[in-house]
Amino acid sequence: MTIEIKTSTLEPVRQTYANIARRFGDKPATRYQEATYDVQAETNFHYRPLWQPQHELNDKGRTAIQMEDWYAFRDPRQYYYGAYVGQRARMQENAENNYAFFEKRNLADRLGDGIRAGLIRFLVPLRHVEHAANLNNMYGTAYGYGTAITQAMLYDGMDRLGIAQYFSRIGLILDGNSGEALIEAKRAWMEDPLWQGLRALCEETLVTRDWFELFVAQDLVLDSLIGQLVYDQYDAWLADNGGQDVAMLTEFMQEWRKDRTRWVDAVLKTAAAESDDNRALLRDWAAKWRGKAAEALSPLAREMLGEEALEQALAELEKRMAKAGIN
């Protein structure tokens, strides 16, 4: 039985803000729409930035990509702040339970020495990669155009900080909170020849100027390849070699990867569908960074997983590029 509660209704003068009504008609709008569209200032900036006088404060010209409407980058997840933190809070609660269980049962002790050493060598240094990813997404947040894409880049940037912290916690679980695993992993990051290609590439992304190119380099190419190697192949290898419990510690990242891949692919598809010029740019950037990343990752992939590993990861990247129309 449903109870019908009577509430008094007043006739509103309008259903939503005028900018939303201009885009979608005067009808009740979603919270995502009102929090996103046309929120960023567009015109009449008072002063040129001292730090970049060639640009306005908000300037479409910080990338070579051109869009008729920068709000075309609708986030398929429709994350505004409240929706975003709500979703991540659910994921972190699950992660917290996993970490607590892992520690309570001393599951780290059940990992063989080989697995443990492998984790410190291959997994924990990723905290530094995530740190670069944090900065690269903050770059898009700060210099990108239009709230639709800049807010999503901020959420991704904060995700990467969170993930860097999860990788750090894995290190602390492995070394009993002494911090030694983190020191060792950082030594590998700084000195081990296996990691130098990737470190050099991360440093190169940090000096890349076009924010959309950086999005392609980081969020498509690097994340696609590293994600496939680590969260698919290495995860499977661990499962087959007595390290299956580690999946509890990376479940957050697994779930995050699915969530944000939808967004990244949607952005690429929208940008490519806009014009042939955009498509050509995206294709060039993807090819350029695919080449650099393949070279940088090759020793690591081989050592971590074997000869075929990188090919598999590249095949998945190919597929995503094809889906976005930029292969």
Binding site: E130, Q165, S168, R169, R199, A200
Partner: peptide, 15 residues
């Protein structure tokens, strides 16, 4: 400090 401050590194390949 361990979770956050230690994430950055000295560059070797770029200025």
């Amino acid at each position: 400090r361990l979770l956050t401050r230690d994430l950055d590194w000295e560059f070797s390949y770029q200025d």
